[in-house]
Each structure stands twice: as structure tokens, then as C-alpha cells.
Amino acid sequence: MYSQGLIGADGRTGETETFLAAFQARIDAEEKIEPKDAMPEGYRRTLVRQIGQHAHSEIVGMLPEGNWVTRAPSLRRKAALLAKVQDEGGHGLYLYSAAETLGVTRDGMTEELLAGKAKYSSIFNYPTLTWADIGTIGWLVDGAAIMNQIPLCRCSFGPYARAMIRICKEESFHQRQGYEIMLTLCRGTRAQKAMAQDALDRWWWPSLMMFGPHDAESSHTEQSMAWKIKRFSNDELRQKFIDATVPQAEYLGLKVPDPAMRWDEALNGGKGGYRHGPIDWDEFWRVVKGEGVMNRDRIAARKKAWDDGAWVREAALAHAAKRATGKVAAE
């Protein structure tokens, strides 16, 4: 589950014009690029960074929802949520694997994350405070992620596109799971409905921020689009998300917390769409730079899991080495 304009990618590249033109021609012909193919250094670097950020987002994304696995209010919800959070772990795994085809290692990427050097979707730096947050995350955060991820299935880099196809197939239940929770809450008691509205109030704006800065401020979009790593701009995807989501909120009987939100006939090339009010980009950058409520706790939790698990990973390797040399008990 991920969606955020890539942060800090460096698409600069030092190859000859002829090489770059030949590469661009392959991309323009919709040819997929495979790991061992010759590619511009900037393309490789951008992908490593983007796939890495995407993988980290899945892994860190397990934490806010994992926070409610032990408190899910029915056994059906408990099983569904556990399966969903497990999926996020799987998606992180597929994505690390895709990045590894480019010559980086999962351990290396993990160490960057734990050292605070790698970014991940900043939506996960917000806390999950009530059960309704689980519904809202499934509905909005996974909804936003789907907007971003479906075009990635056609990404020019083969392993990334293949991972995304698998991920999109598996994620199709995630948003439905979330919306079903919201529906049940909104049809429930007054307290349940209030819980749902409160969660929407807190998650709406961070969800819009998931798509990243406005196109005018997003410096790396153009090169990524040319290389077909990215297929739609941040603002295009955000608009698609809003147009899909506002009617869903209305169906729930909930109010999107944007007093300026209104229907605008002129949007989407005259087809009409919902025009949103100003996004608080100061908040966005503050959270990206590490000052969200949960930034430190998220990394600390991942670091603890990694450090506490070190002896287990060492034991498995040590045993494998003994087995290779025939020094185990029962052989």
C-alpha cells in the first residue's frame, strides 16, 4: 500500500546522447526493460529509490494497522485484518525482490530505512487511534494506493511491473474490507458513526497528501514520466482519487472535512470534478522530514524487530553451514 510522489530521486545521468536516445526509443516502443539490460544510471538509480521507498512503505505500513489486530472487535474482522497486514508484508517482500534485481540487497535497503536515510509514505507516520481508523485506512489509504499502483503495473521496468501486477491482484480486497468496516460503523450506533466521522476527519487530508506535492513543485516527475516509471502526475492521480471518494463518503453519510470542496464543471477537461480546498503543505513537509507524531516510533519498532531477530537469522545461517559440512546431529 503506497502512493506518494517519489521524494528526492536523482534522475541525472551521464551517458552519451546516442545511448540515451536508443534507450528512450525502446521505452517509447513500450518495450519492457529487464534487469541485465543496459540502462541509464539515472534510470537505475530512480528505480532503486522508488521501489525501495515503495517496499519500505509496505513494511512500515504494517505497523499502524497491526496496532489493531489484537483489538479487532469481531473474529471475522480479526482474521481479515491479519490477512491484510500479512499481505502488506508480502508486498514489501515482492518489492524488495524487484529492487534486488538491480544489484542492491534487502539488508542494505533495510539498514538505510533503519538509519532514517530512506523515505517511506508519510501517511504511516500518523497514529491509528480507534477501530474506525482501520476502516478509513482501508478505504482511503488503500484507495489512494490503488490509484497509484494500477498504472505501475505498466511501468517500463519488468520486475517492478510484475510485482505490481501481483500486488494489485492481492490488494483488491483491501479497499473493500475498509469500506465494509465504514459501512457497518455508519449503519451502527451513534457512537460508531461518530467514530467513523472522526477517523475521516483525521485521515482525509493526509490521504490527499499521499499523492505528493503539486505537479508544479514536483521536480522529478517529468523524467520519470518520460521513462515510463510513472504514468500519471501527482495532481492527476489526486483528482481521480477525490472524484472517486467524495461520492463514497456521501453514501456513508459522512462529511469530507473540506469546507471549500465543491463540484466544478470545468475540471477533468469539462467532464466535471470535485475541486478541493488548499492542502497544508507545511504539515506534509514537516511529517516527511520526520516530525509526524509516529515517525520515531515507527522506525524504532522496525529497528527493534530487526535487532531482536538478528540472533534468529544468525542461528539459521549457522545451522545451514553445519548442514553443508555434515556437522549436524541427525545426519
Binding site: K304, A305, G309, A310
Partner: peptide
């Protein structure tokens, strides 16, 4: 088992542990 979710020693176990947990919760239900 579900308490391990997101905190396992390696990613592969973050998938293996919930598989067992889901089996057990299914039987309990």
C-alpha cells in the same frame, strides 16, 4: 501469534506466523 505481526525476525516469518494464526482463528470460529 498475531502479536508478532510486523515484528518478526525476518520478512518471510512475517508471512509465516500469520498463516498459522489464521489457521487457528479459523478453527476457533
Amino acid at each position: 501469534l498475531s502479536e508478532w505481526c510486523g515484528h518478526a525476525p525476518m520478512l518471510e516469518e512475517d508471512l509465516a506466523l500469520p498463516n498459522m494464526a489464521l489457521d487457528l482463528i479459523g478453527v476457533a470460529r
